[in-house]
Simulated assay, not measured.
Amino acid sequence: MSITQGYWAPARRVLSPNHNARPAGEVSALVLHSISLPPGVFSGDAIERLFTNRLDPQAHPYFAQVAGLRVSAHLLIRRDGEAVQFVPFERRAWHAGRSRWFDGMAWRAELNDFAIGIELEGDEQSPYRAAQYATLSRVVRDLLTHYPALTPERITSHARIAPLRKTDPGPAFDWAYFRQCLGQFL
């Protein structure tokens, strides 16, 4: 099993303090995000610094706007496909913010309570890389196996759960290709 004690075995761990207990312990949805720091710049350690509250607001003009945020995600998938895990899946990461989603039966709010958050290093204009889709498909396969309430239909985007605030992972994310990659593992 690739998930043990809330951690995905292939991921490098960089622990974030930005998490707390899930109210009901439920894991039943997955939210895909995109992130680049500064915007449009890939690589470097700024994302890790943001999620661990160590981002230097003086290092770049944009950082002054976000350095004080207390945010996290469960996983980050880098451009080369490397996975970095910040929060165990059983804990509530702080990735969705104010959010709302129709899960097929009812409207639910506060997706952090029951969703896993995966950040893809990227932006909404630059195509995501094959290595990212491959890693994403592998981790999602393992999550679907480990969490029975999580199904492929319960994978969504930040844009769908917070449409007035967010647009990620954006039009550069190829949902059809992702589902094709994921299908190879199911």
Rank of each mutant, 00 (worst) to 15 (best):
V84C: 11
T156P: 12
F114S: 05
T4R: 15
R108I: 15
G117N: 05
P61W: 13
A46L: 08
A64G: 10
L55S: 13
H95W: 00
P61E: 14
F63A: 02
E121T: 05
G170I: 13
E26L: 12
G40D: 12
W107C: 00
A24G: 07
G170H: 08
V140M: 09
L76R: 02
I161S: 03
H146I: 00
S16H: 06
P148E: 11
A11H: 03
A130T: 12
L32N: 02
E121Y: 04
E48A: 13
V14L: 14
Q180D: 11
D80E: 12
S126M: 08
R129F: 08
R70H: 14
Q5M: 12
Q58R: 15
P17M: 14
R179D: 10
Y147A: 07
A73F: 04
A96W: 01
L37E: 02
W8H: 12
H33N: 10
A21I: 00
V87R: 03
T156G: 11
H19C: 09
T151F: 09
W101S: 05
R98I: 02
H33F: 15
E153F: 11
F114H: 06
F63E: 05
F185C: 12
L30P: 01
R91I: 00
L120W: 03
I3H: 10
D113A: 10
G117K: 02
Q132M: 12
D56L: 09
Y147P: 01
V66A: 10
L69H: 10
T156V: 13
Y147Q: 09
L143Y: 05
R160W: 01
W101Y: 14
A83P: 00
V84I: 15
G68W: 07
P23V: 11
D113P: 00
L120F: 05
F42Q: 09
R22D: 02
N112K: 03
R160L: 15
W107V: 13
F114E: 02
A46G: 08
S72E: 01
P39Q: 07
I47Y: 02
L32K: 01
A176D: 15
D103G: 06
L76V: 12
P152Y: 13
A9Q: 15
F42L: 14
F86N: 00
R79N: 07
Y177V: 11
P57V: 07
N112Q: 03
R160K: 13
A64R: 14
W8D: 13
F102G: 06
E153P: 04
R22T: 03
A159H: 09
L186T: 11
A93D: 14
S16W: 01
Y7H: 15
T167K: 15
Y133M: 03
Q58P: 00
D168W: 04
E82V: 13
G104F: 10
V31C: 06
S126F: 03
R154E: 03
Y62S: 11
Y147I: 05
T156H: 07
T151C: 04
A59K: 08
W107A: 06
G122W: 05
V140W: 04
R138W: 06
A106P: 00
K166G: 01
N18C: 11
L15K: 13
F173N: 09
R141T: 10
F63H: 13
L144I: 04
R100H: 10
R98Q: 10
D113W: 01
V14R: 05
P61S: 13
